[in-house]
Simulated assay, not measured.
Amino acid sequence: MDGIIDLNADLGEGFGRWQLTDDEALLASVTSANVACGFHAGDPATMRRVCERAAEHGVRIGAQVSYRDLAGFGRRAMDVPADELTAEIAYQIGALDVFARAAGTRVSYVKPHGALYNRAVRDREQAAAVVAGIRLAGATLGPLPVLGLPGSELHAAAEEAGLPTVREAFADRGYRPDGTLVPRSEPGAVLTDADQVIKRSVGLARDGEVTAADGRALRMRARSLCVHGDTPDAARLARRVREELTAAGVEVRAFA
């Protein structure tokens, strides 16, 4: 391993007066912020505020695009026609970039959220529609890196389209033996023990290895590590993960 890892988290996941993520605290630890663009969470005021705070902290801003599913937090399976999904992806990226540029920065990458993230791992058509939306937004923004699961259809489609890809691993999610994530409907999908999450984070960043749900070791070379912003005590966990990565000799640095 090269001893360098990006630390990302999902931010801006609120709506109106309801706030889910501790954005200010998370921004003190992460190097990349996956900002909700209004389809699974977020609203214009929240997007603007998070972009301003991210710019102040020197944190890179990524568009966390989703199916249009506020009620289900973007975690429900949906069937969206490819052309419609392409337009919705471009729409979300463009909306976030307005606030990013007003804050003196820009959208630096794209990461799907929830059900769309998992669907695009295996569904070639949906993955291609997401990439088409990223390219559509890129007509004015330039080629945007795509953050996603290694070996996914999303990354295959992005590479075919000439977009940079960034391999992502999860500090707090369970893995199946094939390298995909354990569905949230199954036991062991989300890891809540802080010591376990920290140990996994260091193993992923330093050794390129993670333990699957069945106990076998998986090779997992990643450039970015995700700590979910909506897990209990996420801000403190992200801070501890960063501290332990640094103590282990891993440089925490944004990929974008």
Rank of each mutant, 00 (worst) to 15 (best):
A132Q: 13
T46W: 01
A127R: 00
D6S: 08
L70E: 04
V59S: 06
N118W: 01
G133P: 08
P150R: 05
Q19A: 15
A100G: 15
L218Q: 11
C226F: 07
A205M: 07
G142R: 09
R60W: 02
Q64S: 05
A157R: 10
V252M: 13
R206N: 03
G38M: 08
G249T: 09
G94N: 12
E244K: 04
A254L: 12
R76F: 03
A71H: 14
A33W: 08
F99E: 01
L141H: 12
V241W: 00
S152F: 02
I61C: 11
L204M: 14
M1D: 07
E209I: 14
V252L: 10
V110Q: 09
A217G: 02
S152L: 07
A212V: 12
L154A: 06
N34A: 09
Y109E: 03
K199P: 00
D178R: 11
L245V: 12
G215S: 13
Y117M: 05
A189L: 13
F73Y: 14
R124H: 15
L144V: 10
P81A: 13
A234V: 07
R176L: 15
G42Y: 05
I5S: 02
N8V: 08
D69M: 06
T180R: 14
M78F: 01
I89L: 08
A129T: 08
A36Q: 03
R223N: 11
R242C: 03
T31V: 11
P145A: 07
G74T: 06
T165K: 04
H40V: 06
F255R: 05
L96D: 04
I89K: 01
A157S: 15
A139M: 14
A71P: 09
E244V: 00
A234P: 04
A139Q: 15
P81Y: 10
I61E: 09
L7M: 05
A77P: 01
R167V: 02
